[in-house]
Amino acid sequence: MTRPTWRTVVSVVTYGLLGLAFVLGVIWFFWPGNSRWEPAVNSLTLVAGLSGIFVERLTAEAERRTEVLRAVADELHENTRLLNDERFSPDAPTSRQVYPRLVVSAVDLALVSGALGLHRDADLVGLLHRWRDTVHLFNRRLDLTEISTFSNTISAAELTAFHRALHRENSYFAATREMLQNLLAKIPQA
């Protein structure tokens, strides 16, 4: 947790310097005889102004990261909802159907935005890359399933085979769901 501490230190120093400059300004107002008050107040205000620039930058960066993580978390919750859709249910009828697709737009944006820290979020970035690949392969499998099940020659037994293959314990569907749950557990709370 280096960066929040660093941001806190810079903020405390900035507001401390401004507070001190204010106190000196008040004293200068009541006892204006001492000509050294002016440079003291001006110097403190100048240093506080400079450190304030860092405070603003660090705060904006943190807010951007929080927004990105919130969007990713929302998208993952949406994907959880999609995987729980009744068309993916083991009790769904074994008829041919068009399945909903998982989405990765927020994950794509998070990866290209640069909002996630190079060192701090390295593990999370790796997980998001793997999740992105998994979703693409999952959606491709849904494409293949639909192409096969919507062909003219499909039999009831083959439709049942697709239903069985989708809900098998070690199927790609189960692996995708498990990966989604792991990823949700690893997303930092915004």
Partner: peptide, 14 residues
Amino acid sequence: GESAHSLADDIWAT
């Protein structure tokens, strides 16, 4: 049962 191997199994294999 499940020992049978089909196109569906190939598609949904991990």
